[in-house]
Design a protein around this nucleic acid. Sequence first.
DNA 1: TAACTGTACTATGAGTCATAGTACACTGCA
DNA 2: TGCAGTGTACTATGACTCATAGTACAGTTA
Lengths: 131, 131
Amino acid sequence: MFELDIRSRKPIYEQLVERLKELIITEVLKTDEQLPSVRTLAQQLTINPNTIQKAYRELEIQGYIYSIKGKGSFVSPAIDSQNTEKLLKVKSDLMKLLSEAMYLGVTVEELIVTIQELHASIGGGIENDQN
Amino acid sequence: MFELDIRSRKPIYEQLVERLKELIITEVLKTDEQLPSVRTLAQQLTINPNTIQKAYRELEIQGYIYSIKGKGSFVSPAIDSQNTEKLLKVKSDLMKLLSEAMYLGVTVEELIVTIQELHASIGGGIENDQN
DNA sequence: TAACTGTACTATGAGTCATAGTACACTGCA
DNA sequence: TGCAGTGTACTATGACTCATAGTACAGTTA
């Protein structure tokens, strides 16, 4: 279910946040569906429960999930469908960019390397980072 | 000449590397032009000379500059400047797209897969398997 | 020679990340 | 009611990165 890269400079909890966001946006995890408990998921992924909790807390702050003490954590309603449209727009933009790049003679490999460099230059971070 | 953000999660030396790369690619710094010495630049930017040296070393590894002990550091001649210019042209658009995508929870991996899919649908071959 | 250049170390402090452990409040069920 | 499971909040620790500080050495140039 999850593929974590412990070698990555990107912290585990951030990888978790991104992966879970993706699952929520793509509606693999549906509204009000219960997420694995912090302890269960920690055991499955063989990482510390605190790391899971940090990811869940971040997801709750960003409105993707809600947590109820004693019950569990659940997917927030209404975020998914709203963003799928935007996702389609991103893919559309990507399409234009790709054709433009190929017209300029840029190979797909160069494009991928560039994306990875840009991503690395951002730091993989979502919050707090300008530039 | 340089705008460094000490608050950013991005290390200072990486900011330096990127800024200098940009200046070299855009030919603001021209072939064989001498860069400021590590100590001079450190004083100008009020940061440690070791940080400058780390950036210069990285730039040398990546082929953007060459250094001669006792003389100084200089811009490398023509690293396929045509392609790098083209890449730079696409880079700003890609940057916007990437930040927007990440805001929506799209992972870089998914973005890369999408590019490969689009590229394949256009008619190019798939060379790089990332998943 | 003197002042500059790059380069290579060691040491230190600040900060982040992941882990480990403990504790408490709440829910649901037998 | 008791207990297992849930989220949540702490502290402490070790590993790691980053930037600084200081020292030292080798090479170039006026």
